[in-house]
Structure formats: structure tokens, C-alpha cells
Design a binder for these strands. Structure first.
Lengths: 210, 210
DNA sequence: TAGATTGTTAATCGATTAACAATC
DNA sequence: TAGATTGTTAATCGATTAACAATC
């Protein structure tokens, strides 16, 4: 195994990717760490350090080729392969995520939703079918699933997550308001705790008004 | 102004709040930093350091009173006051956020949505009215708005944000895939970049499978 | 070549952890 | 009082920034 790269660095990579995408749209061919640092409001030093965790993508005296760097970061982030996603919970949030077409451009493809509500049986979201929870095992056996997005009430989140892992799904995008307890298992979890985010905003509002 | 508290600390406060809430539900009356650290998988030292940024909430030999600490963190996070929210963009994500009843328990109250789509005129989400964008100025003038949630395409996000700030709204919960350019203004911004989050997950999947 | 800018090492800064005296 | 556990200072660790030699 190579030397571990810190999550602080990883968290910044999608942001670089986003800015490079914008530069591409603007038709910019090359950029120096200094120019990029001005745009992104980070230090040029940090950009160079971050990138050099993964290799030398630039050239002295020239800077970075935008298209090349964009593609390389895409590779690093695993965007060259398609990721099939199932969404657990077909409520508002589950449906909102499903409708987020934008993800598809990045290679993320939602292929099914699951819910317990019988009213949703045989329904679909933008052509993507909603199944009942008891159809999950068979579906997962027959399809290659890379990620499960969890938009369930917190009471159901933990057991569902464990079940998904047992079915062989090793990546969970967790929207439930709990920290999943799957420590001993080989799973990657990415949390999106919306209410935590809102509370952080609330704190900063109070601070800002002082 | 008091000494600045780092965002790293602030980011952890909602998590403490969440765990203390769970302890309350379990009927636990008091807890030591050590027991809490075991539950939360952080060091006891960090818990004590974090809390002591805001004051001494514990007692030697006893630990922390759960209810008291819960309330105090609630105050710190500004949850004692109600925050009125408007949601810009009544698409799937805007509606999903609006339906997230959970927020209300924390004092966040969504009072209106705004969209450009004339089909949505006079519609509502769970009783909360959808207005047209041209009704925004009047609505903001007549109501006390604390937070605007931005669920717009990135092309519209920046100008809308500027407009909101001009109308006197100084907190933005940004779901658009851009970093808003409002640097010189007195605004607090909390970003929720879902595709960034998904890319981070994707990176960790690749790493995990090695 | 001269100028520009990277890749990388060294210095600084900040955040986390450890330790322990204070005290309930 | 003795035991437990905080609040806080000191030590360590990691992340960011600065500096500069290498090189295109």
C-alpha cells in the first residue's frame, strides 16, 4: 500500500475538478498554480502540494495543461468508471437525488429505488423503477451495485446498512441523521448530514451578527 | 470580539448535540468525557477541549449533566431562536428540503418557496406556498427572513445570491454547484455540494478496493 | 538563453493528544 | 476523605505556507 493521502486533500480534489471544468468551458488551455490560486482563494503552495500527492502533472515554466489535469483528477476520483447506485427510501429526498441528472455526467447512474410504502409499488421516478424492500435481495443479486444512497429514517438506517453490506455493497452515501455503526466491516461511508450543516450555518449567523 | 473559534470545532458541535440528544432519549442523566468519547469514537481530550472553548460545562468528579450540556450546545448553535427560511427553486431538491419536517424541531421554519416556472404558480408544498420570482422583493420586505436556501442551477445562483443579499438576507445555504462570489459582503454561506460529496465517496471506493 | 513556474524541502502554524494539578 | 473527572497547560502531530533549486 502506498502512503496514505489525508482526507483533507481528498476533500479538495472535487473542487479542483470543478474549477478546471469551468476553465475548460471558458476555453482556457493552460494555467499556473498561481492563477488558479487567485480564482479559488487558496494558496498556490497548497495546490502544488495537493497535486503532487498524486504525481507531477505540471511543467516548469509552463504551468498545468487544463484538459490534461482535468482528466487526471477525474481518474484519481474514479470518474472513468460508471457507478451504479440504488436509492434506499423513495421519499422526497430519495426522489430529489434520483432526479439530479447532473450526477450522470460524472458517471453515477441511479438504477433503482426501494421503499416500504406499498402505494409506490410499480411506480417510477423519471423512468427509474421503485421496488419494494422485499425485492432488494434478488435485485442486488442480479445487478452490479456500487453505491447505496440511504435516505431513510434514522431508526431504519443502521439495520438496512448492515443488510446492504451483507449483500455485498461496500459503499454507502448516508443521508440519515445517524453515524452508521459498521466499523468492523470493509465499507466506505460518506455522510451528508443536512441538519448538521444547517446548525453550523446557524452558529455562524449568530457569530456574524455580533 | 472574543477569540475566534475554529470551524473544525464548530463542525463537531452539531455532532455532540446529536449524541447528547440520543443519550437524553435513553434517559441517561450524566456522562463523562471518557464515556462519550467511546460512543463517538473521538478522544476524551478533544471533547473537553472543544467544550472549553465555550465555557466549563462539567464538574470535576461528576462529568457532564446531559440535559444541561444539550441545552447549552443548543444555545451555542443558535437553536433557541426560530430561523425563517425561504427556498429558492421549487424543483425536486427544493421540495425535498421543504418536506424535511425534522428541521422544524430545531427551530428552522420554511415559510415560502420561489421559482420561475409558471406551472408552479399558486401551488404549495405541504401547505407552504410557492411564489414566482417577481414576488420575491415584496415578500422579503413584509417578512423576517433569516436564511435563503439556494437550490438553483449554477448559472442563476450567483446573481440570485447577490440579489438576496441586497434585500438584506445575510445567510445562504447553498446547494448550487458553485462557490458563490460574495466575498466582500457580510454574508455567511454554508455549502452543500452533493456532487463533491459523491466524488469523495468514489475516490474512497477506489482506494478501498486496492 | 532568460524567464517562468514547477516539484520538493524546510519552516511555520494550528489542531490534536497527553498529562496532571485543581476540585467536586 | 478518597476517587473520579474536569479544565487547562504542555507536548506532539499533521497540515499549511514559504522558499528555492531544478528544469522546461
Amino acid at each position: 500500500m502506498e502512503k496514505e493521502i489525508s482526507q483533507a486533500v481528498i476533500r479538495r480534489m472535487p473542487r479542483y475538478y470543478r474549477y478546471l471544468g469551468e476553465l475548460l468551458e471558458e476555453g482556457v488551455e493552460r494555467i499556473s498554480s498561481n492563477d488558479l490560486s487567485n480564482r479559488m482563494q487558496v494558496t498556490a503552495s497548497q495546490i502544488r502540494q495537493d497535486l503532487n500527492n498524486f504525481g507531477g502533472f505540471g511543467q516548469q515554466g509552463y504551468g498545468y495543461n487544463v484538459q490534461y489535469l482535468y482528466d487526471e483528477i477525474g481518474k484519481i476520483l474514479g470518474l472513468t468508471q460508471t457507478h451504479n447506485i440504488i436509492v434506499m427510501g423513495a421519499g422526497n429526498l430519495g426522489q430529489a437525488i434520483t432526479n439530479y441528472v447532473k450526477f450522470e455526467r460524472l458517471g453515477f447512474r441511479i438504477i433503482a429505488l426501494f421503499d416500504v410504502n406499498p402505494d409506490l409499488k410499480r411506480q417510477n421516478v423519471r423512468g427509474i423503477p421503485i421496488y419494494m424492500m422485499d425485492e432488494l435481495d434478488e435485485f442486488v443479486a442480479k445487478n452490479e451495485i456500487d453505491i447505496a444512497a440511504l435516505t431513510l429514517p434514522k431508526e431504519k438506517a443502521d439495520e438496512t446498512a448492515k443488510h446492504l453490506v451483507d449483500l455485498g455493497i461496500h459503499a454507502i452515501w448516508n443521508f440519515a441523521h445517524v453515524d452508521l455503526d459498521l466499523m468492523d466491516r470493509r465499507v466506505v461511508i460518506e455522510n451528508v448530514h443536512l441538519s448538521d450543516s444547517l446548525m453550523q450555518l446557524s452558529y455562524n449567523i449568530v457569530k456574524n451578527s455580533k
